[in-house]
Design a protein around this nucleic acid. Structure first.
Lengths: 141, 141
DNA sequence: AGGGTAGGTCTCATATAAAGACCTCAGACC
DNA sequence: GGTCTGAGGTCTTTATATGAGACCTACCCT
């Protein structure tokens, strides 16, 4: 817990430094979290955690991603140095994506989030049902 | 690490179960992560981690959020049971938001992510500069 | 009467994501 | 030799998310 609080305090410091100084908010933590917080990045990294995979394998593993978003997410992750891309000059060429050491280092913190989500999702679902069913307990207006 | 891998395997199982069965992908972990993975939720929870705060305090702490998104994010978090909302019948009424126990339980996993982001953001920044500066090392076409 | 504060809502514009058609190249099929 | 499939994408169009900022109610202060 003290661990958690110290990270949060560091984070808050970035935030408030920005809030007091000039206009543009530039918190490095937000910068990183905004990037991997998109719809597919976490899923992609988790899918590559088990083994390196090719474009089409990834597309089959994550059926509901479009090719466009698959390409774009892979490019963004490559740009951030979280995955690496190898082109094999076969005919037709095949491309393999795999986690870099940096990407690998993300697995542990991400796993703790996933663990939380897995353990608490029933609580969250219950809260949603409660909220939607009784929208007048605490009127908003 | 074995901890991390077990969470990832559980997650992959959800994914592949969905991939094999009927059409709609419904992985509870993705459901939860997609929600808190939006632009402001993590920031909001972190801001409320230090103490309960009122609408205007939150707006001052997170300067670059619009009132519209502030309201919406708070509603969504309340709906998911992560924060609670108390209206004090002062004149004019004041509204205080604070973390629920469920929201509080999210702090620790989230802090480990923040800690990662904080430690690795310079690596990520360096990777971006490298990628943007040398886009022809591994041609994409 | 004018302005400030608190906690919002509303409308409209833009930025980002997604769906899905299309493309190239090669080998296998018949 | 026509066409089918598969890999690894790109391009165009449409949907959704976010943002800016005007407005609202009710009260207090000057």
């Amino acid at each position: 817990m003290s661990d958690a609080l110290s990270a949060i305090k560091r984070f808050s410091r970035y935030q408030s430094d920005d809030a007091q100084s000039g206009e543009p908010v530039h918190c490095p933590v937000r910068d990183v979290l905004d990037r991997i917080g998109d719809k597919w990045s976490i899923l992609m990294i988790m899918t590559l955690a088990t083994r390196p995979q090719r474009f089409s394998e990834l597309h089959r593993a994550i059926r509901d991603i479009s090719k466009r978003m698959l390409t774009q997410t892979l490019r963004d992750l490559e740009r951030d140095g979280l995955i690496t891309r190898h082109v094999f000059p076969t005919k037709p060429p095949s491309v393999e994506y795999c986690l870099s050491p940096l990407g690998h280092s993300l697995l542990e913190p991400m796993a703790s989030l996933i663990d939380w989500a897995d353990r608490r999702h029933s609580d969250i679902h219950a809260a949603r049902v409660r909220f939607d069913g009784a929208p007048c307990d605490v009127p908003h207006s």
